[in-house]
Design a binder for these strands. Structure first.
Length: 595
RNA sequence: GGUCCGGUAGCUCAGUUGGAUAGAGCAACAGCCUUCUAAGCUGUGGGUCGCGCGUUCGAACCGCGCCCGGAUCACCA
């Protein structure tokens, strides 16, 4: 039982004792005392005044008196308006610190929850390289998975690669026309960028042809429909679907180039998957489920042959599920893959990390699954995140304003390298060791920059202002960690061991604040897990780092002459590092030992 | 037009189930390195929490109405 629960229970008891009113623990409003007041915990007594029939001040004083007499940990109390501030004896906080230090893997659940989650994220198209939008999606998907794991859940991370369709054929056609047999190796390019170039090349050729046709007298609409290269792409898609060996071979070859490129980017971003699905293998799925739903009367068929779901009773429209020719659409496919997943893995929740532009799609997905009678329909959860935009608005590939993932990461690493060298921080490190630190710092900066923002919100990214390394940033958190590690190394050299704190050596206010912050980690992890919100952890890590830096500035650790005080501070610093690293790890941030 | 999401300092963002005088960072200005890492610390200035009404001891937070911005509503994925 935490002290918080204990206090709440005792406050409830106090109200009953003093005023004869039955209040539940949940009705007791207990909060951490704000810094500008004295105390550790604050009870808001306004709700009790209707029982006491006295002023808020008198009620608070009466309750405070009762609590002080009955709870040994309470050293004193003060009353300001309707707020009862309770001060806990300092020895208690030292006990908390020692308990935390003795906890293995502090910040992570000690027991498995027994629940299993599947998290789908990334889901790229294999016709162009990953961009800034994917970076947000990948960081978010990875971080949420790690947070769920920290909460004791079993997590399966999956990726659904969109590797088929007209957009893939466009790159293929352009490659056939313009590549002259070139390969990523011969061009000296990363495979995804190489293929992406041909996708762009297709668009250029297409536009030229449309323009020519328009000049020749066709209407704009006709020209767009009849451009030869587009017809070729459509023909290619037909051939692919028919299993034409030559087409399939080229498709496979080009997709492999792209996937090799993705592999590299994923490694750089530090994300991975337990299982990868390919749409080329799933795109026909769901059809049988829809036909069964039709037979059961859950769906209906139009005269032209297409199959639909009527969602008007849910306030939505009608949704197409099978085309006239009986083929599947995106929704059908997703129903099919969801069905497969729930059959294969016994998951309690299936989380799709997908941008908010698909909110409607996932709303419909859950509704149709429910309509089809699947009991797992309610386990579908869309973790919807906002887009990443430029100051001018959305990124547009046609206008070349897309911020490429590889380029951006390279740029941030360069900034980290330049900053570090300027500060001369890694003198004595080998080239390789230093590069490793630059990479960690750069990725940390990028991850924190994105994850500290509420997932729902749109992020405005200004490429002209490079990612910051000072203030409320990833590197600040990493720097704090490195500082503690440095102190620990110095302590070791001096033969000072990290040992439990002496309960008789009192903590200063600043030290108590740090202990309280560190003690909050499990609650933050739980809350972040319940809300799928890395931002909560990011803000917590920053708060802790900031508090530590102030402490570090005001209180010498190794220079402290009183051995008991020195030991306490060293332990405190050490546990700060533990908590910071735990929180940062759930954001996918790696901590350098020096920086 | 329907549905969903956002609007907090010049900029980027926090703000716990409604609680005390709304907080950080960046930018600006002024200080602090012979001391455990200055990617740090301290200080100054900066606010109609989009607007209005309501609910109550108390509203950035809850309710209703409006304003602004975005997303979405394909036999595309």
């Amino acid at each position: 039982m935490t002290i918080e629960n204990m206090l709440a229970a005792r406050v409830a008891a106090a109200v009953k004792e003093c005023y004869g009113a039955q209040v539940s623990e949940k009705e007791v409003q207990l909060q951490e005392t704000r810094k500008e007041f004295d105390g550790d915990w604050t009870v808001v007594v306004f709700p009790f005044t209707r029982h006491s029939r006295k002023s808020p001040e008198a009620t608070a004083a009466e309750l405070g008196d009762y609590l002080q007499r009955h709870i040994p940990e309470i050293q004193e109390y003060n009353v300001i308006k309707g707020f009862l501030n309770l001060t806990i004896a300092p020895a208690y906080w030292i006990g908390v610190l020692n308990d935390i230090a003795a906890t293995p893997r502090y910040g992570r659940a000690r027991q498995p929850s027994g629940k299993r989650f599947m998290v789908e994220y990334s889901s790229p198209n294999t016709n162009k390289p990953l961009h800034l939008g994917h970076i947000r999606n990948n960081f978010l998907g990875w971080s949420v998975s790690e947070i769920l794991r920290a909460n004791g859940h079993d997590v399966i991370m999956v990726n659904l690669v969109n590797d088929r369709g007209i957009h893939i054929c466009k790159s293929m056609i352009a490659w056939k026309h313009f590549a002259n047999g070139a390969t990523p190796e011969s061009a000296g390019k990363k495979g995804d960028h190489f293929v992406g170039d041909y996708y762009v090349r297709f668009d250029r050729a297409y536009k030229e042809q449309v323009e020519e046709l328009t000049k020749a007298g066709l209407s704009a609409d006709d020209a767009r429909e009849r451009a030869p290269i587009l017809l070729e792409a459509r023909e290619m898609l037909r051939k692919w679907e028919a299993g034409d060996p030559e087409t399939v071979a080229l498709w496979r070859r080009m997709n492999d180039w792209v996937l090799d490129g993705f592999e590299e980017t994923y490694r750089l971003m530090g994300v991975s998957f337990d299982k990868v699905y390919f749409e080329s293998e799933t795109y026909k799925k769901g059809r049988d489920l829809i036909l069964k739903g039709l037979a059961d009367g859950a769906l209906y068929r139009k005269e032209s042959g297409s199959v639909w779901a009527d969602l008007t009773s849910d306030g939505l429209d009608h949704k197409l599920l099978l085309r006239d020719d009986g083929t599947s659409v995106y929704m059908t496919q997703d129903i099919g893959t969801a069905h497969d997943r729930f059959s294969e893995f016994d998951v309690d929740e299936e989380i799709y990390v997908v941008g908010n532009e698909q909110n409607y799609h996932f709303q419909v997905l859950a509704l149709v699954c429910r309509k089809l009678g699947f009991e797992w329909a309610d386990k579908i959860k869309h973790l919807s995140h906002g887009m990443v935009e430029l100051p001018e608005g959305r990124m547009k590939s046609r206008e070349g304003t897309v911020v490429d993932a590889d380029d951006l990461i390279a740029e941030v690493i360069e900034t980290a390298r330049a900053t570090s060298r300027e500060l001369g921080k890694l003198d004595g490190y080998s080239e390789e060791e230093a590069e490793e630190v630059y990479r960690k710092v750069a990725l940390g900066a990028l991850k924190y920059f994105i994850l500290k923002i509420d997932p729902k919100k749109t992020i405005t990214f200004n490429p002209k202002e490079s990612i910051d390394f000072n203030g409320n940033t990833g590197p600040f958190i990493q720097y704090t960690y490195a500082r503690v590690r440095s102190v620990e190394r110095k302590a070791q050299e001096a033969g000072i061991e990290i040992r439990p704190a002496d309960p008789l050596s009192p903590l200063t206010t600043k030290e108590q604040n740090l202990v309280k912050l560190i003690a909050r980690l499990p609650a933050v992890v739980a809350e972040a897990g319940a809300n799928y919100s890395p931002a909560l952890l990011a803000n917590y890590a920053y708060e802790l780092a900031k508090e530590f830096n102030q402490f570090y500035h005001d209180y010498p650790i190794l220079k402290e002459e009183n051995p008991a005080a020195r030991a306490t501070r060293l332990l405190l610093a050490s546990q700060c590092a533990v908590a910071i690293r735990a929180a940062a790890a759930m954001l996918g941030m790696e901590m350098p030992e020096r920086m």
